[in-house]
Design a binder for these strands. Sequence first.
DNA 1: TGTACATCAGTGAACGCGCGTTCACTGATGTAC
DNA 2: TGTACATCAGTGAACGCGCGTTCACTGATGTAC
Lengths: 204, 204
Amino acid sequence: MTEQKRHHHHGNLREALITAGLELMEQGGPDALSLRKCAKRAGVSHAAPAHHFNGLVSLQAAIIARGYQKFSASMRRAADQADAAPQAQLNAICAGYIDFARSHTAVFKFMFQPHNNDSQTLDATTQEELDRDSMASYQILRDACAPFEHNDAQGVSTEIMVWSLVHGYAMLFCAPGKTESPSGPIPEFSQILPKLKLKTNITP
Amino acid sequence: MTEQKRHHHHGNLREALITAGLELMEQGGPDALSLRKCAKRAGVSHAAPAHHFNGLVSLQAAIIARGYQKFSASMRRAADQADAAPQAQLNAICAGYIDFARSHTAVFKFMFQPHNNDSQTLDATTQEELDRDSMASYQILRDACAPFEHNDAQGVSTEIMVWSLVHGYAMLFCAPGKTESPSGPIPEFSQILPKLKLKTNITP
DNA sequence: TGTACATCAGTGAACGCGCGTTCACTGATGTAC
DNA sequence: TGTACATCAGTGAACGCGCGTTCACTGATGTAC
């Protein structure tokens, strides 16, 4: 108010509401998310979100879409900083996967919940955005696994193996302050992945 | 009312409320759980649960405890029907793990959520029951992994590997009607586990 | 440059809803004698 | 076996709360001329 003119128009309220929602989730879990709380956190009246989202499920979808974008960014960032060799790339992608799960635990879990939009359906464009963003995330992992696909067609693709392993690790062991499992200290995922003994079919 | 005398005392309302809660969760997800709905489903006034549970979080804890009991039972049942060889036993335990995730998807996911009991703490006995039941479930998997622990101490235990793999598979692919992943049909877990090429250190 | 006007993104009051919780109560159960 | 009584597990009304949603409104923005 003093340092910044109070505009009637917020400027980018939609973005502010999504950001507020991400923060609320991280602080209080998925149940802490409500339109009213997001509005309050964005410094706006509780009726304002109605101009940007078609109800709570629409905001949730936008938050999840944003989650997938950050998820993809986390994996890409890790890959960019790694050696170009397939093994190093896959390692990095997994590290980015885990990093995101650790730094955005609540949203990460929420992204993989079957969102109980019972009967309540998203509008087509929101649904498409969501599908696009989630597929983009998955595609990153998929691409990183491709060099390890065997041609001996045993029926189980590398990506199913790796995805299950990294996702299980993320779900079980990536609570914010977690360093202990029931059976002792949690190893880094970079120690776990080599156990799959993946072999690239690309000749060096 | 006609075929059964209407008792003032329910008989076993606590159990009935837990069962009702499990059903509500499976049908509508974790958000569908409320004390009032459980009471209604158990055929009792909405104030009755207060005599058996110290608020909603207490009922949730009881539901999760019940979930772990069923989870353990599912794994044990599968193990009992399998060959005694370590490989067959571990296979069966994993199958029981997956079976439970498929048949109790909502409760399964709820069990592994960090329950946002922010500041709100369970009474000691409920917390102990919960810890005991969850540890019992984990111990089953742990025992099944024990014959495969290597002595070469590479720092990553078999149980961390197997647990991550089976849990990730369960979380990603065990929605009730799910048979497709983004990359095609989902293989059975029994096809996946052998890829770990676990070796028992017990001589036959 | 100035004016008229449509559009848009906010406000704040009001609504009904389901929720957890409390409260005085009531009727069944179990026990002492 | 019968009676008195404490205990316990229900009932139904009532409360306040946060929620999503609607509504008439208002003030800023952008455009036509």
